[in-house]
Design a protein around this nucleic acid. Structure first.
Lengths: 346, 346
DNA sequence: CTGTTAGCGCTTTCAG
DNA sequence: CTGAAAGCGCTAACAG
């Protein structure tokens, strides 16, 4: 039986953890000073800071994020919402953001919306419970409730610059999808292709913007024909690209070029062309979008638009970090541009 | 100027948040009863449970994870460590695990180790600060310190079943990589290919296991030749697959088939073969591993081994969830098998 | 089965 | 510039 029961009335739940007050005691200061010293909050004497830091180091003090979150009503989490994990594009975004955030001591909570406004809203509710310090959201298509929820925390939008309605002022990092689509189309026109089809799947807002770019470029050249649009709401994939290609070729042989809204579709089309002995770009030119992995390896190598996904993820995270600290970003809408990559397929 | 200052001494930090005690008051019970009722902890009268739930609903009560974590010393986080985000394999794992975890109210904290033991250790330290309820870790190659850290929380290993040393008893969900490698090699042998090369990149533990399966199958057939191994420590990619293929073909024309350790390499090789006019499988057969997206679209379609990544992610999450609840899994090592997918390339 | 009462570990007023 | 003390919102002993 235990001999030492000097404090029988005390119900302790001591966890053995080294706490801030341990550090404070060791450094000979109060917990508040220790807290301030450790967080680098100014208004603490330099020597005290040193003492506290030494003590913390010696005791191997590890702050408790839960306690901190509870007391300060702000966690070190940042929620990142993306539509899909099965699209490299979004994974690249996530990876870059996560890396940047982690370097500043923030934990990423990821949410996958599956392009579903309801799911996004639900996710937002769940994630907001954790009182994230900030939010990174893909796109601009949200339910009204989601928009309300997002307004509660510093928030930066990824990919799309302008909001559709232009209502709420907000922050974003991305590039001009419509302009990129137009630029790519103009390249095709310059190469002498006139009958340029647009083939798309998934049909999210960005795809639609690219389409409008394609349309305006063709209209400007007097080459627009509405029957050149091939839209398929299904998820984008290599296989679907192949199918769409075969369909287009079968039904409309009088086509010079096809602008696929995403590289995976274009890659699938290229494979299908190979299989059916259709020569690219001689019989039909093909271009894609995003410059995903493998697009430089296809046969022929794919002409496409390189989009700065990693830089977007990083810059958005950086902007958010600034916002969290209360800084105003230099530009609310950061345009990172894009790059036409001309290879052999068009 | 504010007229009502009845409680000047009280320094409130009221957040406006609906708290558990609001719910308890509304339901006419104590906070502990409310807490128990809401968490479905038994030993609460059914009618009280109903009252509490109604009150919670009416007040739109949202529990605070930070407060809960602080009080219970256990958060609703689960940390998931994967080597890379640039490999579909791991993203599939992550996605499946995350989905399963979220359905049970757990938040996923992801960590990317970049195949680096030090980075994994560091990540583990960071993530463990959050007192995760559990851990999902890819592979079995960890630093001693990491192993210690992992022992502090319920933990399930993904992909690799057995631990190298066989020391610590532990939980895992995966399949037998060596057997899969052997099986694929035997298929090649059955098709009449004798000189079967093994080409690998990345060289992680799993790749090496596949290689040992390849070796033993060849040895059993008396067809093993150590000069048939082509190892490249670089990261796996389509482009690298192409390069390796060209190298192999150039230096060792007397080869019947090549077993690439991963589909992306094999896909690159196929493209390269196409480019150089080398017929597959007539001149050289090619097989890959994992059945990644696109492998059914290549020319010719790729023969490979389908690995149950999504099921692994899900089952591992499920096992972890059980462990967290204190349940003992039926099997500590869950083997989910694999499937030979014979297509046209071999 | 239910309520009381201490905390969990930290930040933040408020005074000094 | 520093310290005391009051919580943040919840769970967990303990006693009834």
């Amino acid at each position: 039986m235990p001999a030492d029961r000097s404090l029988p009335a005390l119900r302790r739940r001591a966890t053995g953890r080294v706490t801030l007050s341990d550090v404070a005691r060791a450094a000979g200061v109060s917990t508040s000073t220790a807290s301030r010293a450790l967080r680098g909050e100014r208004a603490v004497a330099p020597e005290l800071i040193a003492q506290v830091q030494t003590a913390a180091q010696r005791l191997a003090y590890v702050p408790d994020p839960a306690a901190r979150a509870l007391a300060s009503r702000r966690s070190d989490h940042v929620a990142v919402l993306i539509p899909l994990l099965s699209n490299t594009l979004f994974v690249d975004l996530l990876e870059a953001a996560q890396k940047t955030l982690r370097a500043q001591g923030y934990q990423t909570l990821m949410g996958v919306t599956h392009y579903d406004r309801q799911e996004e809203e639900q996710l937002l509710r769940e994630l907001l419970q954790h009182r994230p310090a900030g939010l990174l959201v893909t796109g601009r298509d949200h339910s009204p409730a989601s928009i309300d929820l997002m307004a509660r925390v510093p928030c930066v939008h990824l990919m799309d610059l302008a909001e559709p309605g232009g209502a709420v002022p907000s922050y974003s990092v991305g590039f001009d999808q419509a302009e990129a689509g137009a630029e790519l189309t103009r390249h095709l026109l310059r190469q002498g292709y006139r009958r340029v089809a647009f083939a798309a799947a998934q049909l999210d807002a960005r795809v639609l913007q690219r389409m409008s770019g394609w349309r305006s470029a063709l209209q400007a050249a007097g080459a627009y024909d509405p029957t050149l649009e091939w839209l398929n709401p299904a998820a984008s994939s290599l296989a679907l690209g192949g199918q769409m290609f075969e369909q287009i070729v079968q039904q409309r042989p009088a086509i010079d070029a096809i602008f696929f809204c995403n590289d995976d579709l274009a890659q699938g089309a290229l494979l299908s062309a190979l299989r059916r002995g259709i020569r690219v770009p001689e019989q039909v030119a093909i271009v894609g979008f995003n410059d995903l992995t493998g697009s430089d390896q296809t046969l022929p190598a794919l002409t496409t638009v390189r989009t700065p996904r990693a830089r977007i993820g990083e810059a958005a995270a950086q902007m958010l970090l600034g916002l969290i600290k209360g800084q105003q970003p230099e530009q609310a809408q950061l345009d990172l541009g894009f790059e036409l990559v001309v290879r052999a397929s068009a």
